[in-house]
């Protein structure tokens, strides 16, 4: 828009002849003082609520200097928490990636009855509180749950064990990839895939050579968000973990234990790992978002040229 040179008193600065000293405020602009007040409020609010907590993580972690900071990571329980987090995310992200692709293919490329219900159901885990997400697996696999007695009879433990953590993580990250892909693939339609099919490409070839290149950035976006949530999930894994130190702790759970033991420096040091992950996620998200915008524009261009 404009350069921002406006005159707040334009109404009254009526000069008898010629132009007023400064240019008029446009009809779609607020007076300068309003504009600058709103900007100040925005910056103030976001600083207070977002930036200060983020900085606090690092400040608390480095309170006693770099030595204790790095010592926090040398602890075997910290290392095992990091390993478990990588494992959980390593299973949950690919699983939901495959699901997201399958669901998006079925929903975007075909017409069938009940499609909008299916989309709503895929989004469902977002609507469920993390604690309840954990609870449903306890109800299913816990000692007093439906399958618990049978499972323990066969010596399989899910709740208070790694499989439970993975399941809860898969649940809370379930929609991420699918919900990025479905709208984009619906927007893109099936023309290109049909063209490929007419030219004799097989289903896998169509997917690999036509569809995936068209949605790669949205796919990456979904994976980034899915991964961030998988590594950072707290409520759901907290319910199913049972807090067995060194065995079923992910990084966020390890943070909680350290914090509750008043080991603040270590708690914030480990938390700073997750904060760094969040910053990387935000940066990657920004880069990928602009790519997606371009992807979508390329999709829309031919149709606007037609109209």
């Amino acid at each position: 828009m404009s350069s921002g040179v406006t005159n707040t008193t334009a109404h009254t600065a009526l000069t008898a002849r010629g132009l007023p000293a400064k240019r008029l405020r446009l009809a779609t602009e607020e007076p300068d003082w309003v504009r600058w007040s709103l900007i100040a409020i925005s910056i103030g609010f976001l600083t207070l609520f977002l930036l200060v907590p983020l900085l606090a993580v690092f400040a608390e972690a480095l309170r006693k200097g770099l030595g204790p900071y790095f010592a926090s990571f040398a602890d075997p329980t910290a290392l095992s928490a990091i390993r478990l987090t990588l494992l959980t995310a390593g299973i949950a992200v690919p699983a939901n990636l495959v699901f997201g692709l399958a669901a998006a293919w079925a929903i975007a490329k075909f017409e069938f009855f009940g499609k909008s219900i299916l989309i709503t159901l895929i989004d469902l885990p977002f609507a469920i509180s993390p604690v309840i997400s954990g609870l449903i697996y306890v109800l299913l696999f816990g000692m007093r749950g439906w399958l618990g007695p049978w499972l323990s009879g066969h010596n399989v433990q899910i709740i208070f064990a790694v499989p439970g953590l993975v399941l809860a993580t898969v649940f809370v990250t379930f929609p991420f990839v699918a919900r990025e892909l479905i709208p984009l693939m619906q927007e893109q339609g099936t023309e290109e895939e049909q063209a490929a099919a007419v030219l004799g490409a097989s289903g896998w070839q169509i997917l690999w050579r036509v569809t995936l290149p068209n949605v790669k950035w949205a796919l990456l976006y979904g994976v980034i968000l899915c991964n961030a949530r998988a590594m950072g999930e707290f409520g759901a894994v907290s319910v199913v973990s049972g807090h067995i130190r060194g065995k079923t702790n992910t990084i966020p759970l390890h943070v909680e234990i350290l914090y509750n033991e008043y080991n603040f420096v270590a708690a914030f040091a480990v938390a700073s790992l997750l904060a760094l992950l969040a910053i990387v996620t935000l940066a990657a998200k920004n880069v990928v978002e602009s790519r997606i915008r371009r992807e979508l524009q390329q999709t829309l261009e031919p149709s606007t040229a037609e109209a």
Partner: peptide
């Protein structure tokens, strides 16, 4: 902005009016 430019309604300037 130009020194000699003008917008007149009924021969009186409205340049300064929003």
């Amino acid at each position: 902005p130009r020194a000699d430019s003008a917008i007149l309604f009924h021969d009186s300037s409205v340049s300064g009016q929003p």
